[in-house]
Design a binder for these strands. Structure first.
Length: 556
RNA sequence: AGGGCUAUAGCCAAGCGGUAAGGCAUCGGAUUUUGAUUCCGUGAUUCGCAGGUUCGAAUCCUGCUAGCCCUGCCA
């Protein structure tokens, strides 16, 4: 369990193939220092899959005493926006990582242009006259080689001139394109003279109208890495086929650095969609309440739901890094949230679906303030006092008129403990004209007061409660997975129509002033977060982050 | 099918020629003023399959099977 950081010591846990590669490189002295980067395109919000990559990149470099930068891969102005730049920075910061530097691919447009010219001069790139359709048709198929374009044999001088005109805005979008001259018959389609620059008369969020030609990812990315001195360029599996092109660019550009691309498997979670396209669709079609809806697997959604940075990071560490396609059970994420909050969150009581209990033998008008530990597993959190009186609320589901076997909550004639207070026994059930239970009449035994040491008899059940006259109204939002079933077909057919359950109940009086993102464990319910958007001073709204585990089953 | 990659328990995953770590989930049992926590216990004679090399193979070799990715002027 040596998990040292920042001193170059390799941890013995969480070992994986990328760490092996880096270890070996460092032992062989291949690099002075390891440099990684997290390179999001600012075209959407970050999700937990990105968190896996963020944790990997930052902690890997940190472990070897290296550095990590944040670099926005903004080479396609059609899809990118500053809104996303801002959100991405915020999410990384919230997770607790500080990039060595923040850069943009667009910072290097001039340098990339020069490198393209360098390729042209070597006869390794040419300006293409063919249309997009013609290029596609001549590319061949998976099993047949492509055909060489007539433009391929253009002279260096003419290519230089045309490329300059492309930059100068003398052509319309799609009229010309710059292609790398590699191999039209390569079995790897990425090497069949890939397009490396296209014309797009579009305002860029960063460079404005300075450019009307933009480099393609496959050309830009290796250059960005080389410029920044990145040693290990970590990306996901679908870029594996691009690695030969990545290496080709590095080999033929006028660059001394030799970054190495390493691919790992992206994260998939049960009951979750994990692509920006799909998440954007959920937002655009108003299936959810924005990118930060508490049901979204986005970092901002998880944050609003109440997940902590530490729980997300620990999850990312524990799932490991490999090249095998995977589908991780969301319950694993939930586990790390519970583990993180177990000792940190105050434990208080909330009644989500109240039913009133009148304790008929308790003096009218009397109130007792009972001592209660804030977290029995963490005494440093101290004590609080909670009121108890003749009328309290308990959970409607904690009473059954006709209970099955092994039900040890309240039922007629049964005695249970009220947490931190007394034993009560159900004497009478009051119903309205529709037969709905409106009130329970109980008696209490003064001798059974909590902390009194009473042990003449035992009860099987302990119920939480909120004192009725001082109860603070609150809204509770419970969540189910947004996606019913991750398998097959259009994911929109699997959207759970009933993924939010709203309850109106009460919390303890001492919770009247909680504010955005405060987290609590509500006894027997789970961990809750004060919704930073919906909650206000006069309307408390709690999101259930995760429930407590439970082995209780009715009828079983 | 041309190329690239992957395959270890229900899920994730270590392992790197010396006899299958760990986590999640599940199911038992003990403790419990949360049906929680905690604690103990629970599963691979076998690593996709078939051959081969070796004293010895999840690890090396050969063949096969299955799954994922690649024919954007997206990243």
């Amino acid at each position: 369990m040596t998990e040292k950081k920042g001193d170059g010591t390799v941890s013995e846990t969480h070992t994986h193939f990328i760490k092996h590669i880096v270890s070996k490189d460092m032992e062989e002295g291949a690099y002075d220092e390891i440099v990684t980067r997290f390179p999001p395109e600012p075209n959407g919000y970050l999700h937990i899959g990105h968190a896996k990559s963020i944790v990997l990149n930052f902690e890997l470099a940190d472990e070897f005493g290296g550095r990590t930068s944040l670099r926005f891969d903004d080479t396609n102005p059609l899809k990118e926006d500053v809104e996303y730049v801002k959100a991405i920075k915020e999410d990384i910061d919230w997770l607790g990582y500080e990039p060595e530097e923040v850069r943009f691919a667009s910072d290097y447009f001039e340098e990339m242009y020069k490198q393209a010219v360098h390729l042209i001069k070597q006869g390794l790139a040419y300006v293409e006259d063919l249309s997009q359709d013609e290029i596609r048709n001549m590319r061949g198929t998976l099993t047949e080689p492509g055909k060489e374009s007539p433009s391929r044999s253009r002279s260096v001088e003419e290519n230089l001139e045309l490329f300059e005109k492309m930059r100068a805005g003398e052509f319309a979008d799609g009229e010309k394109v710059l292609r790398a001259k590699i191999d039209m018959s390569s079995p790897n389609i990425n090497l069949r003279d890939p397009v490396i620059y296209r014309i797009s008369h579009t305002t860029h969020h960063n460079t404005g109208d300075a450019w009307c030609i933009y480099p393609m990812y496959s050309f830009a990315h290796p250059l960005e890495d080389a410029i920044e001195g990145v040693t290990h360029s970590i990306c996901t599996l679908e870029f594996e086929d691009q690695r030969p092109l990545y290496d080709w660019v590095i080999a033929n550009a006028d660059m001394t650095a030799e970054p190495k691309q390493i691919e790992f498997a992206r994260l998939n979670l049960t009951n979750t969609v994990m692509s920006k396209r799909k998440l954007k669709q959920l937002v655009d079609e108003n299936i959810v309440d924005g990118w930060d809806d508490p049901r979204m697997p986005t970092i901002s959604g998880l944050r609003r739901r109440g997940f902590t940075p530490e729980s997300i990071k620990q999850f990312c560490r524990e799932i490991g890094v490999s090249k095998a396609d995977n589908l991780v059970d969301v319950r694993m994420l939930e586990h790390f949230l519970r583990e993180d909050l177990k000792l940190k969150a105050p434990r208080t009581m909330a009644v989500l679906d109240p039913i009133k209990v009148v304790i008929t033998n308790y003096p009218e008008g009397q109130v007792e303030w009972l001592p209660a530990d804030i977290n029995p597993e963490n005494e440093e959190m101290g004590m609080r006092e909670i009121p108890f009186s003749r009328e309290i609320y308990i959970e409607r589901e904690d009473f059954m008129e006709d209970p099955p076997k092994k039900y040890f909550r309240l039922y007629p004639g049964n005695e249970v403990r009220i947490k931190h207070a007394y034993f009560i026994k159900c004497e009478d059930v009051i119903k309205d004209e529709n037969g709905r239970i409106t009130e329970l009449h109980c008696t209490y035994d003064p001798e059974t007061k909590s902390g009194s040491g009473f042990n003449a008899r035992k009860v099987k059940g302990t119920l939480h409660y909120v004192e009725a006259t001082r109860a603070v109204p609150a809204e509770f939002r419970l969540y189910e997975p947004l996606i019913d079933d991750e398998a097959g077909g259009d994911f929109m057919d699997h959207v759970n129509e009933d993924s939010v359950q709203v309850h109106h109940g009460f919390v303890e009086p001492n919770m009247a002033n909680v504010t955005g993102n405060d987290k609590f464990q509500f006894f027997r319910h789970g961990y809750f977060n004060v919704d930073p958007k919906k909650s206000s001073e006069d309307r408390l709204v709690f999101n259930r982050i995760v429930s407590l585990k439970s082995s209780f089953k009715l009828n079983g």
